[in-house]
Design a protein around this nucleic acid. Structure first.
Lengths: 228, 228
DNA sequence: ATAGAATTTCAGCCGAATTTCAGCAATTTG
DNA sequence: CAAATTGCTGAAATTCGGCTGAAATTCTAT
C-alpha cells in the first residue's frame, strides 16, 4: 500500500510519514507542488495526500493536473484554510476528502482507511479468475495448489491484480516496483512477467497476463471464446 | 443516478430532495433509520445520505448494517455533532464522507459529485449503429461478438467514430494516425480501412466505412434491401 | 564461507503489426 | 468507348517489441 505525501511543512510531512509507516504503509514524501505533480502522475500510488498551500504549484492545481492525466488515485486534501469556498474548490478540483489542519491522527487514519476501503484496495487476498494472491504469505493460490512468489514477482502480481483488466504500462510497473528513478529497463519487466506466467501455469490458474504491444500488460481470464 | 436520503427532519429532507432533483438526480427520502436500512440494503442506490441522529436506528448503525450486507453504496453522513469522535465513528462505521450541519448547498453538491465521480466506472465506449468500440480494451463489440483491433486499426476506428457521418480525408487520417510529417501514403489508409471492414463484417456489425472518391471516408449504418 | 534464492544481463528467436506492391475494379472524363 | 484516375485487395516482405533460456551476478540466511 503506497502513499505519497505532498506537503511543504517538513515537520508535518515527517510526522505523517512516521505515523503511516508505523501502520504498515509504504510512504514517500515530497515538499512542493511541482515534485508532487510529477510523482503523483506516475499513477503508482494508492493514495495522495496533498497540502493546499505549497511553493510552485498549489494543491488544487496539482489535483487538477493529476486528474487531467486520467489518473484517479484517491486524493486527500489538507489545509489550514477551513473556509467553505476552499473546501468546495478542493472537491471540484478532484479531491475525494478534505481535512482541516490541525487534525487528529486518528481522524487522518480513519479517513485514509475509508478512502482505501472505497477504492477497493484489498487488505487480505486479491482474487481474479480461479486464483487468488495471499498477501500475508506472498503465495499464489489456485484450488489445492499454491506457489511462493519472490518479492518482485509479488509486487508485480499485486499491481496487476489491482488494475485487473485495465492496462499497465511497463514504465508504470518499473516506477512502482523498481522505484521512480532506477536503472531498470523494460526487459526486466518482461523477464518477471515470464516468471509469473510460468508460476500461474504451474498451479493451473486460468489467469493470463496479456501483453499489448507498445501499451503494456493486463490480466484476462483464460477462456477466450471469441472468433469469427 | 439514484440517491436515497435518510433524514428525520422533514424540512431538511425536503429541501435536499428539491435541490438534488433540480440537479437532475432521482431522489427518494425516508424519515427514520429503520426504513433507511431497509431501503438502503436494496442496493439500488448510487449514493446514500444518512443523518446520524434519527428515531429507531441511528445513522452509524444504519451504515454498519448496510456494509454488513456487502452493499457498498457510497455513504455521506450528516450530523449536527461536529465532534472529532463522531467523525471518526462515522468513517469507521463505513461512511465515505462526513458533513456537518448546517452545510452549504454548494458544498453538498461538491461532495456528492466527488463521491459519484469516484464511484463512476469510467467506461469509455463509442457507439455507432449496432456496434461499439471499447476504449479500454481496444475491442470492437457487436452483440455477443467482439474482436481486437491493432493499435493503428484502433486509432483509425476511433477517429472515424468521432466524426461519424462527416467526411474524413485520407490526408487528415494520415496526419492524425501516422503523424504530421511521416512517409506514409494514401494506400496505407486504404489497407487499414480494408482490415477494419473485414473485422466489422466478422462480428456482424452494420457499420459501413464508405469511401467518397477524392474526398475520404465516413461511417454509415448499413441500409439493407433498399434497391430498385 | 557457502548454498540456495532472487535478480540481472544478454543474445537470438518469434510473431503480430505494419509496409509494400502488383493487379483488378470502379468511376470519371473526353 | 477507351484512357486515366482512384480505390480495393491479397499476398509477400519487413520490422520491431516482446519472449525465452541460460549464464552471470547479487543477495540472504545459515
Amino acid at each position: 500500500m503506497k502513499i505519497l505525501i505532498v506537503e511543504d511543512e517538513r515537520h508535518l510531512a515527517d510526522s505523517m510519514q512516521a505515523l503511516l509507516r508505523s501502520k504498515g504503509f509504504e510512504v514517500e514524501a515530497v515538499y512542493d507542488g511541482e515534485d508532487g505533480a510529477q510523482y503523483a502522475e506516475l499513477g503508482i500510488y494508492d493514495l495522495l495526500i496533498l497540502d493546499v498551500m505549497m511553493p510552485k504549484i498549489n494543491g488544487y492545481d496539482v489535483a487538477r493536473m493529476v486528474r487531467k492525466q486520467h489518473c484517479n488515485t484517491p486524493i486527500l486534501m489538507l489545509t489550514a484554510k477551513s473556509e467553505l469556498e476552499d473546501r468546495i474548490e478542493g472537491l471540484n478540483a478532484g479531491a475525494d476528502y478534505y481535512l482541516t489542519k490541525p487534525f487528529d491522527s486518528r481522524e487522518l487514519l480513519a479517513c485514509i482507511n475509508a478512502m482505501l476501503r472505497r477504492q477497493g484496495t484489498q487488505v487480505n487476498d486479491m482474487f481474479f479468475g480461479n486464483t487468488h494472491l495471499d498477501l500475508s504469505t506472498c503465495k499464489l493460490v489456485c484450488g489445492e495448489n499454491s506457489i511462493r512468489l519472490s518479492p518482485k514477482e509479488f509486487d508485480i502480481m499485486r499491481f496487476l491484480l489491482q488494475t485487473g483488466e485495465k492496462n499497465l504500462s511497463k514504465e508504470t510497473i518499473l516506477a512502482r516496483v523498481w522505484g521512480y528513478n532506477s536503472e531498470a529497463v523494460g526487459n526486466h519487466v518482461e523477464v518477471f512477467v515470464g516468471f509469473l506466467r510460468k508460476k500461474l501455469k504451474a498451479i493451473g490458474s486460468n489467469i493470463c497476463i496479456e501483453a499489448r504491444r507498445n501499451l503494456g500488460y493486463h490480466l484476462e481470464v483464460e477462456a477466450d471464446a471469441e472468433e469469427t
